[in-house]
Amino acid sequence: MSKAITGGAHPQAKTVSRAGALAGRKLNLYGLLFASPWILGLLIFYALPLVLSIYYSFTSYSILKPGEWVGLDNYRNLMNDKSFWIGIYNTIYFTVIFVPLSIVIGVGVAVLLNMKIKGMSVYRTIFFLPTLVPHVAIAIIWLWILNPRLGLINLALEWVGIQGPAWLSSVAWSKPALIFMSLWGIGNAIVIYLAGLQDVPQDLYDAAAVDGANASQRIRRITIPMLTPVIFFNLVMGMIHAFQQFTLPYALTGGQGTPGTSMLFYVMYLYNNAFIYLKMGYASAMAWILFIVIMILTCIIFVTSKRWVHYQGK
């Protein structure tokens, strides 16, 4: 009797399972249907250009002509291109100075903004506001602020008896001025640091206070180690952003990299080759060199992070 009941239940169970599988396939189909615009956009505007750029980097392709296969000539010519090496130097100069300064200043400002005082939300908003300003507008604002004769900074320096430099008109001061301008817009990183600070357990600070640790010791022994995962993230993102520096120097110089070639950054020269000189194959080779360099540096940071990044519970 039990066998008969069990045997009679099998067809119904199979029917239910088939109906469930059919409903699951319909849901998957609907999901793909709704996601299809994004998938098509990803394939057409990201994946396809990525694959084609590899091919174009071995050709003399321009926007107006299909070009011919030239093998490694584009890469060889880059090694003898003076502007290519100038762009690398300017980009590395900016990255080596800007990224550490952005971390130190970002952490310091975040620590101050984490204090419990009246009106702190207003101060946090003030530090975040520059990130909402378009880069072109930032360039126009700072062109006035850094004006050698009428700029606010040089006027302030004159009040204390210091002759201000020419800033963006000087080969020696143009990159430091750009670094200063970029540091003005690190509000996003400050918000991330602030979120990381609020995730540090208060028990650790209380225990350190009981042991007699002062504020400096608490920051050095508790805050910084607990903040290393956030520092690691901003280090990687800051490095990638710095190597792709483009909008500010382009808006400041109109793509010329003046004064001299002090503001000719790597991505600016890549853009000029692609869309002004119409050397798309040459620019594709530059893009892949930049990609390889960024990937190598990112891998190095990830490997070394095991020594200095500390996660809670580990």
Rank of each mutant, 00 (worst) to 15 (best):
K3H: 09
G108V: 09
R25E: 10
Y277H: 11
M286S: 12
L157P: 13
S121D: 02
V122I: 07
W38G: 10
L270Q: 07
L155I: 08
A274P: 03
W144H: 10
F84E: 10
Q245A: 07
N188M: 11
G255F: 00
N234I: 01
V230I: 12
G41K: 11
G212F: 01
M226D: 08
F265N: 01
Q256V: 07
Y89L: 11
K314P: 01
M286G: 08
V230D: 01
T131R: 11
K14T: 03
V303I: 11
P201M: 06
F127T: 10
N77C: 05
Y205M: 00
D206E: 15
G185T: 11
P249H: 04
F291P: 03
V111C: 13
L33Q: 06
V303H: 08
W167D: 00
G254Q: 05
P130V: 09
V171R: 09
A242P: 00
V136E: 07
Y55R: 14
I117C: 08
G187I: 09
P229K: 07
S305T: 02
G31I: 07
I292Q: 03
I141N: 13
L27T: 12
L101P: 00
P201K: 06
A287F: 02
L72T: 12
G196K: 05
M226S: 11
L50E: 04
S2L: 15
T298H: 09
G257V: 02
S36A: 13
F94Q: 01
I141A: 15
S182M: 02
L204R: 08
F233E: 02
S62I: 09
N188A: 14
F45T: 10
Y269D: 08
G238A: 00
L146C: 11
G31T: 13
A19Y: 04
W308P: 05
I296V: 15
P37Q: 08
N28F: 13
A285T: 15
F265R: 00
T298S: 14
E158W: 07
W173T: 06
R221Q: 06
L22N: 01
K314D: 13
T228S: 13
V111D: 08
A4R: 10
I103Q: 05
W184S: 04
L52D: 04
M181L: 11
M280C: 06
S2N: 09
G185Y: 00
L157M: 14
L43C: 09
F265Q: 00
N80Y: 14
E158R: 13
R18H: 10
R18F: 09
A287R: 00
S121W: 01
Y205H: 03
P148Y: 07
M268Y: 10
T95I: 09
I97K: 13
I117T: 15
L50T: 15
P11I: 07
V122A: 02
S174W: 00
M263D: 01
S182D: 01
I54K: 05
S57T: 08
A110H: 03
